[in-house]
């Protein structure tokens, strides 16, 4: 088989791969634009706040988490940066929000892309949410001085207000 035939086959594979993703990605992005236009997440973060209160998160902290869940890490981080500038988040909240969104973001797009390949949705979604929740729970406990002195968190961790930048 000649190299050209292989290249051609690779190109065709590539095009069909792009096609199979495009028919998922384009509708998702359109729906997300509509959601953004209607500021749906403001309403959702109000509703989602009560069940997350025990993690020491205010409503201001729930919003960037939701933004990351739905729109992705870049948007979520953007909200963190602007909220930090406006002084809307405590140090603990920045740490908790940043940690949870590092693990769980772009949940719709990532999940549907891999679902398309044939993987059950719950296998893709559940571990991310559970581990993100567990991580914030642990951070909250440390913050409350339960596992380690909370100064440890500030010292080694992981977060430094000065590091936040645009």
């Amino acid at each position: 088989m000649s190299i050209f035939a292989t290249l051609w086959e690779g190109l065709l594979n590539g095009i069909s791969n792009v096609w199979s993703l495009a028919i998922i990605v384009i509708p998702i992005i359109i729906v997300l634009e509509i959601a953004k236009d209607n500021s749906i997440l403001d309403k959702w973060s109000h509703k989602l706040h009560p069940p997350l209160k025990h993690l020491g998160l205010s409503e201001n902290a729930v919003f960037p988490i939701l933004v990351a869940f739905i729109f992705g890490l870049t948007y979520g981080s953007g909200v963190i940066i602007s909220y930090v500038k406006e002084g809307k988040l405590s140090d603990y909240e920045v740490r908790a929000v940043g940690s949870s969104m590092a693990l769980a973001h772009a949940l719709i797009e990532d999940t549907l892309l891999f679902w398309r390949v044939g993987i059950p949705i719950w296998i893709l979604l559940l571990p991310r949410l559970v581990i993100a929740y567990a991580l914030v729970w642990v951070l909250n406990r440390i913050h409350a001085g339960r596992f380690l002195p909370s100064s440890v968190l500030a010292k080694f961790t992981f977060f430094n207000r000065k590091r936040v930048n645009l």
């Binding site: 981080s77 963190i80 940043g98 590092a102 693990l103 961790t157 207000r161 590091r163």
Partner: peptide, 19 residues
């Protein structure tokens, strides 16, 4: 991106790669 939001690289690498 996470670093821009204030997390340290090593920390984020750890909490993502280990799980």
């Amino acid at each position: 991106i996470s670093k821009k939001a204030g997390c340290s690289l090593f920390y984020v690498l750890l909490v993502r790669l280990i799980p």
